[in-house]
Design a protein around this nucleic acid. Structure first.
Lengths: 247, 247
DNA sequence: AAATAAAGTTAGATTAGTCTAACAAATATA
DNA sequence: TATATTTGTTAGACTAATCTAACTTTATTT
């Protein structure tokens, strides 16, 4: 069993590696993903990310190498082994499920969920995670619009954009909002929109720029300003999957 | 902020002190509670309870004394200060709320909840606890029939008995089951009974020993064997409250 | 290529929580 | 009361995770 600290090191390595793979922006049209899972990371970089000193990272790397969770040679770059990546993805899965839970069930705001999820992600209970997933109806995205890895550790790489940018006729999924003000969130709510909802873009009226969409069987019109603050993932665009296995 | 270990020491001291106050049995007709909150505990006893060596307890006691959470003099008995008791009750509250959550919302069984709640009780977030309480509709008892301290740290001392022992005409609250077999639980469920339900004993038929009860506005008859496996707390019997403050 | 800067490593110390083994105090018992 | 037993304490050591300060290697730059 891994300590919370070890889990945090693995998670951080995954995050840093993924930033290098697909670019770190929250909303990212998508620098094409490199196939290999091995975004390589340095000691100082990891130390800065974790808020510890490089010396501490060095000590921990020896331990994680011993446990075969990272690939690492003296003065070389650091990457996760398959096993390490699996563990890291599991932590990320738990983190994002808990964030979704807090947001959806306990009315936590977008910016409150992270801190508590940082604690909850370390709870050890496979049954709890399964039940949580089921309770939330197997969500695909967390409140930040990030993909929640599924139970198999699969984590599709998606291209986020705003609803304003979506093509007419396409189906998409709402994954986040860009404006977290109370008025906007209430407005979003009144329109019957929420995270993980399926949306179809029906039309775009050149006369006044309004966009007609269909959500939960109902049709409504939204302004460009509104659409620019809704983050979506296109369901009609090809998806690439990054799995636990390299390749 | 207390470490998880410190929290566990305080919680254990509270449990041991309470056992001495009211008797440790799960179901207890009730040795009358001593007014003072100071059930006194020894080093070896606490060590045995926590599964550590007396030397470790000794070290920790010095630390907790330093933080003014325990009263303790060399070779003397150990008790919680008011502050320590408050912290301990807060941990117990979280533990029992999480147990209730797992039991009610995630279909954990009676015997599965404890282990996971041992982890969840250390999550630091006042908002999370409040929301959890609200989400569960402010439950009074956990799945083991133990009282859940309220947000003010009040923890009424109750006298548990079986439904078989309850007087005709009295109102009571179901707090637990004694038989945790699947058939019994299904039967309980079919009768419309569940933990924290209010029950009124309408009659006791001497002819066949059946007990007539009212639950959620509906009337039904139960056998003595059934009644013996339902743990309740009488709502018509006087309650004593043990608060954070002594007295 | 030499000098400088950046990145990474090591040794030794620190803190929290634990242990063992030896010792001291309090209690029980003959 | 003297002895034995239980209970509690101390000293010294260990592990995990961190630090500082000194050092080494690799990369960059003139």
């Amino acid at each position: 069993m891994l300590s919370q600290t070890e889990e945090n090191y693995l998670k951080s390595l995954l995050h840093l590696a993924m930033e290098k793979e697909v670019g770190g922006d929250a909303i990212d049209a998508g620098k094409s993903a490199r196939g290999d899972a091995g975004g390589e990371v340095g000691t100082n970089e990891l130390a800065a990310y974790l808020g510890v000193k490089p010396a501490s990272v060095n000590d921990m790397l020896k331990k994680l190498k011993e446990k075969k969770l990272v690939n690492y040679e003296k003065y070389g770059k650091i990457s996760l082994t398959e096993e390490g990546r699996k563990k890291a993805i599991d932590v990320v899965r738990k983190h994002r499920l808990w964030e979704t839970f807090l947001y959806e069930k306990f009315d936590f705001t977008w910016d409150e969920v992270h801190e508590v999820a940082e604690q909850l992600e370390h709870i050890q209970s496979a049954k709890l995670v399964d039940k949580l997933d089921e309770f939330l109806n197997f969500p695909a995205y967390d409140p930040h619009g990030d993909v929640i890895p599924n139970a198999k550790g699969e984590m599709p790489v998606v291209h986020k954009k705003t609803l304003q940018e979506e093509e007419v006729g396409h189906h998409c999924t709402m994954v986040a909002v860009k404006d977290n003000s109370a008025p906007f969130l209430q407005y979003v709510n009144k329109m019957g929109l929420s995270i993980n909802n399926k949306i179809k873009v029906l039309a775009r009226h050149s006369y006044d720029q309004l966009i007609e969409i269909e959500v939960n069987g109902k049709t409504c019109s939204i302004s460009p300003r509104f659409a620019q603050n809704i983050v979506i993932v296109c369901d009609d665009c090809a998806k690439k999957k990054v799995k636990t296995k390299k390749g």
